[in-house]
């Protein structure tokens, strides 16, 4: 049944740690007893219960993964989760571009410029390597420029003038 023991071990450990942190933080929350508040209505009660549930479930997951051979030699997270070299490269590149746009560019440069740069870069980086000849590369580049401009201008216009959103 357990087809991803290494991943389950990592997840189980992470959930256990998160649950423990939640219980510890909840424990430090005030009970408000000095105001005559019913102890069971203290702010930390439910987060502590949730955290405890998470510790229990996380430990179960981790223990089950260990029994299923999570630490066997030759077992890797990437192989278990189907991340071959190509998938890893594509996901990392996409994530880098997306985070760069959403966190790095938006809010720092005008929205339309940021969007144009992001869409253009994304399309070119993913499409150009697959173009077979110079003509195909030119076609891809022209399309990427058009798509980036249309997205930047179109989305900007719709949100700014139709939805009255102050663009970042």
């Amino acid at each position: 049944m357990n087809r991803t023991p290494r991943a389950d071990l990592v997840a189980g450990a992470a959930f256990t740690a998160l649950g423990l942190a939640a219980v510890e933080e909840s424990w430090r929350m005030p009970t408000l007893a000095e105001f005559g508040v019913e102890p069971w209505s203290a702010p930390g009660v439910v987060p502590a219960l949730v955290g405890a549930g998470m510790v229990l479930s996380g430990l179960l997951l981790a223990l089950r993964a260990l029994r299923a051979g999570a630490l066997e030699r030759g077992r890797t997270l990437a192989a278990e989760l189907g991340f071959d070299a190509g998938a890893r490269r594509r996901v990392l590149l996409a994530l880098l571009l997306m985070a760069g746009y959403a966190i790095g560019l938006v809010g720092r440069v005008p929205f339309r410029v940021a969007t144009f740069v992001f869409v253009l870069t994304f399309v070119l980086l993913f499409r150009l390597p697959r173009a077979e000849n110079a003509q195909a590369r030119l076609r891809e580049t022209l399309f990427a420029v058009s798509l980036a401009a249309a997205t930047a201008l179109g989305v900007g216009f719709v949100f700014e003038y139709l939805f009255y959103v102050r663009l970042p």
Partner: peptide, 18 residues
């Protein structure tokens, strides 16, 4: 999908902001 993904992500970004 290489055309679709960046455009949808732009909508995710501006949608979250809006």
């Amino acid at each position: 999908r290489e055309y679709l993904v960046p455009v949808v992500f732009v909508l995710c970004t501006i949608g979250s902001f809006a």
